[in-house]
């Protein structure tokens, strides 16, 4: 819902956008320089925190602990002051490579499972008639507002009974459960708007609703699927709480966020390691952000309603 207001889908808002941009220089003439300066100040202020961590992660241990990271800008092109030692250290000695792989093991299925479950459900909610349909749909959407903290204690006990604590399967299912209401909501909004005709012609071309779903609905819904996939991927990748509760801190299974939190606990002053570790945990989200910016924004906004 928010996504549609904000992204200015190609309707009225879209037109307004172009109008606004073309006339912008006129309306901003008097205060143009002030706007530029303020934008620049806020932009720089917002970049400094990340830049400091980025620069420090390439500096030698002695340098990081004895001088501020900004001192490198005295001789920015003196490449002898940079090193990759911190990265090789966190990836091997501090188990971050393993954590990186664990994050992938957790995140990929924890994204695909809820999308699959939600796509089938959204299709059935939108295009088939069955008893209990509107009731079930209302319940699913209503669950959007429940904070996931409401699930933790009973699930932890349930997992204890079935030996699911500390397993990847357990954490996939937990993430799938927490992500499903949003996934169904987003996909339903999209799938229910697909034109009716495609299903009518589909009845002739393909035999069953199942093939109609896999060959028509899935390919046609890819913008909604992509938006949710990106949101869920980043949500799971960046999650600390669910991983901490259901997966734990054992290096064999700990994900990146947990591993980073552990590093803060054990090596809280080792800034050469902490900064490198922080960047290892950020690299995938940053790549997603830089390559898929359009979908990324849409995904973040679509997902912001998650309770």
């Amino acid at each position: 819902m928010t996504a549609e207001t904000a992204e200015g889908f190609p309707t009225k808002t879209g037109e307004a956008t172009t109008v606004a941009t073309t006339t912008a220089p006129q309306r901003g003439q008097s205060s143009g320089w002030l706007a530029k300066v303020l934008v620049l100040i806020i932009g720089v202020a917002w970049t400094i925190p990340t830049a400091g961590v980025f620069v420090s992660s390439f500096r030698a241990e002695v340098d990081v602990s004895s001088s501020g990271w900004w001192t490198v800008f005295a001789h920015p092109f003196d490449f002898t002051q940079y090193t990759l030692a911190n990265y090789s250290r966190v990836l091997t000695a501090e188990d971050m490579f393993e954590a990186f792989v664990n994050s992938l093991i957790v995140t990929i299925p924890a994204t695909v499972i809820p999308i699959t479950l939600a796509a089938f459900a959204a299709y059935a909610f939108a295009w088939t008639r069955f008893r209990g349909r509107s009731f079930l749909f209302a319940v699913v959407v209503g669950l959007l507002v429940i904070p996931l903290q409401m699930s933790l204690v009973p699930l932890l006990r349930l997992y204890g009974n079935y030996d699911l604590t500390g397993t990847f399967v357990g954490v996939w299912l937990a993430h799938a459960g927490f992500g499903l209401p949003l996934a169904i909501y987003i996909l339903y909004n999209y799938i229910s708007q697909l034109p009716k005709d495609i299903f009518e012609s589909a009845h002739i071309d393909v035999a069953t609703p199942f093939t109609a779903f896999t060959r028509l609905v899935i390919p046609l819904s890819y913008p909604a699927l992509a938006a949710f996939a990106i949101f869920q991927f980043l949500w799971v990748w960046n999650d600390l709480l669910v991983s901490l509760v259901f997966l734990g801190t054992n290096p064999d299974i700990a994900v990146l966020t947990v591993s980073l939190a552990q590093l803060v606990g054990s090596r809280g002053q080792a800034w050469h390691l902490l900064t490198a570790g922080a960047f290892v945990s950020m690299i995938i989200p940053l790549i997603v952000f830089l390559t898929l910016q359009r979908f990324f924004v849409r995904g973040i906004l679509a997902g912001s309603v998650k309770g």
């Binding site: 966020t257 980073l260 803060v264 902490l274 952000f289």
Partner: peptide, 23 residues
């Protein structure tokens, strides 16, 4: 300009915590 302001949204809470502990 917007990208610079938006970028922190893709960083995990744990990453943000490290960034600001350093500040």
């Amino acid at each position: 300009a917007k990208a610079f302001i938006f970028l922190p949204l893709c960083i995990s809470g744990a990453g943000v915590a490290v960034i600001w502990r350093f500040i």
